[in-house]
């Protein structure tokens, strides 16, 4: 539960271009440094290892970009959102650029859980005549354990293909989530398996998270 005496600033930013290849940890470190460079009045935790009170949204895999990432920063005093945004933008690189700042209430859900549903747009290496085959299950390895995820548990609606563009929506569950790149690669593997070997295999050119929202 955040300290009610602190101001909670929610910042929305993009992850694009080459920097789509950064990991969640690398992004977190880069954002923290941008906040420090922006000289915002961030709060610092007490205790053995003092650190900035900052919370990040749900992790994006390496290689997946976004137009709508968020982090929450707790601040010791109020700074007008447009001023905070201007300071952050001046301290940020173009491919990790913040575009919105607003205050949220002390009881609002944290950045990591507020938006369980996210939509993605992917570009494939060539246009498809029909759609992509959608497997019923996807096998993933987590902490050396193999796990089978039912696609229907996570996919909201359909996987829509138009030429080389694919769009779909995934919902994170309290028990876990299905990564967009893992789902798409499973579809592509199934597609490639149906084609003769002499043909160039299909692969992903880019994946971008385009919106994030609460569950209905």
């Amino acid at each position: 539960m955040p300290d009610p005496n602190l101001f909670r600033l929610r910042v929305e930013y993009c992850k694009k271009g080459r920097l789509s290849m950064l990991s969640h940890l690398e992004i977190a470190r880069a954002l923290e440094r941008a906040v420090r460079r922006a000289d915002l009045p961030f709060a610092v935790s007490q205790g053995f290892s003092p650190h900035m009170k900052i919370a990040f949204g749900s992790a994006l895999p390496v290689g997946v970009g976004s137009t709508c990432e968020i982090f929450d920063l707790q601040m010791t005093r109020y700074v007008a959102p447009e001023k905070a945004l201007a300071a952050l933008r001046a301290a940020s690189v173009p491919d990790l650029m913040p575009h919105d700042c607003r205050y949220i209430g002390p009881r609002d859900a944290a950045a990591s859980v507020v938006y369980p549903v996210a939509s993605y747009q992917a570009e494939l290496s060539f246009a498809l005549e029909g759609g992509l085959p959608l497997p019923e299950e996807v096998h993933v390895v987590r902490k050396k354990k193999e796990k089978t995820l039912k696609v229907a548990d996570y996919l909201v609606g359909q996987l829509a293909t138009e030429g080389a563009m694919v769009t779909f929506e995934l919902e994170a569950k309290p028990t876990g989530s299905l990564r967009p790149d893992v789902l798409l690669n499973a579809c592509i593997d199934a597609f490639n398996a149906t084609r003769p070997e002499v043909q160039e295999p299909l692969h992903i050119v880019s994946i971008t998270r385009t919106t994030q929202r609460a569950s209905r």
């Binding site: 271009g17 080459r18 920097l19 290849m21 950064l22 990991s23 941008a34 390496v62 290689g63 690189v93």
Partner: peptide
Amino acid sequence: RPSRYLNHEF
């Protein structure tokens, strides 16, 4: 770790 090869650091 592709971040090694990206450039574009601050």
